[in-house]
């Protein structure tokens, strides 16, 4: 009866074994419960893997965000140089590249294939352009807009074009997806707690006679509760494992199609599965949720179960 760490561990091991035995003796019920939990946990993990893959496939697009400030055609190259320096000095500006009208024409001539047609023109119709990319910290829609207004106010500038506004939108969509994912994870986690709680509640009712007799011969609430907590934790652990398998299998099914799509864009991108850290996190969270669900059920139903009332 006295406390010793060894007998404490032995008792916990006994409870764990007995819980595992109970699960193994009702394989179909166990498989169903684990499957439901696995699917519930697979959804947030799957979404997370998806978002991460989209991110890595598209890069962060930071290079694609920028402004092009087109000057009036009469502005001299020297004036354009000055303006480029002014722009460079502004806070939040990353790089400023001046593309002179001549450079632009030369580039256009070689790349567009309209060389002969261009020769027919009298002068150079192209303006000087400042290609500006923001500093990484300022590549957000608000800062870009204020930069655009600043440049538009210059008399030499005819128009300012915002490049890659879609990138900001795309990143915003990814962010929205991430947030939804957090909410989904929270809701599904609560669902897992409820599933385990209900399963354990039924289990407690099924084993009422055993619980009452155990209390009758002097079993403490803690002793009676222990196997149910282990059962809940095991459900969570197995559910986490099931979720990982579901996500792995889904990715394997998707991988050839994703590779094909990537190849059509000339990319070597391949789908990345959940990492080992994901697996650890999944198993840990699953076990914790299972334990929590069974603890709630046990706290509610076990204390009321006294041998005298039966």
């Amino acid at each position: 009866m006295s406390f010793s760490p060894v007998s404490y561990l032995v008792r916990h091991a006994q409870a764990l074994l007995s819980s595992a035995g109970h699960l193994a003796r009702a394989p179909i019920a166990t498989v169903f419960t684990v499957a439901v939990m696995g699917l519930a946990l697979a959804l947030p993990l799957g979404l997370d893997v998806l978002v991460r893959n989209v991110r890595s496939a598209t890069g962060d697009f930071s290079g694609a965000v920028g402004l092009s400030a087109y000057m009036h055609t009469g502005v001299s190259e020297q004036r354009a140089q000055e303006l480029a320096s002014t722009a460079r000095a502004r806070a939040g500006v990353g790089t400023v590249t001046l593309i002179t009208a001549d450079q632009a024409l030369a580039q256009f001539r070689t790349q567009s294939g309209f060389g002969a047609a261009l020769d027919a023109l009298e002068g150079n119709p192209l303006p000087h352009v400042l290609a500006i990319t923001p500093a990484a910290a300022n590549a957000n829609p608000a800062d870009m807009e204020s930069l655009r207004r600043y440049l538009s106010a210059w008399p030499e500038v005819e128009s300012v074009q915002l490049d890659g506004a879609w990138v900001a939108r795309f990143n915003a969509i990814l962010n929205l997806l991430r947030r939804s994912l957090l909410i989904a994870a929270g809701l599904l986690g609560a669902g897992v707690v409820a599933i385990v709680g209900n399963t354990i509640r039924l289990e407690i009712q099924n084993r009422r006679a055993e619980i009452e007799v155990t209390k009758l011969v002097g079993g403490t609430n803690g002793f009676v509760r222990r196997p149910f907590l282990y059962t809940g934790a095991l459900y969570g652990l197995l559910g986490g494992l099931a979720a990982w398998l579901v996500v792995e299998a889904s990715l394997r099914a998707l991988a050839p199609a994703a590779t094909q799509l990537a190849q059509s864009y000339g990319s070597r991108f391949a789908l990345a599965g959940p990492s080992l850290r994901d697996l650890e996190l999944l198993l840990g969270v699953g076990t914790l949720l299972g334990w929590l669900g069974s603890w709630l059920a046990a706290a509610r139903h076990l204390a009321k179960m006294e041998p005298g009332s039966g």
């Binding site: 009866m1 009452e212 007799v213 009758l216």
Partner: peptide
């Protein structure tokens, strides 16, 4: 309540319907 289990260990109980598992 926390001392009830230890108390019950000092009383053996036999039932008519034996209440075995």
């Amino acid at each position: 309540a926390r001392r009830v289990p230890a108390f019950r260990r000092r009383v053996g109980v036999v039932f008519q319907d034996h209440r075995l598992l």
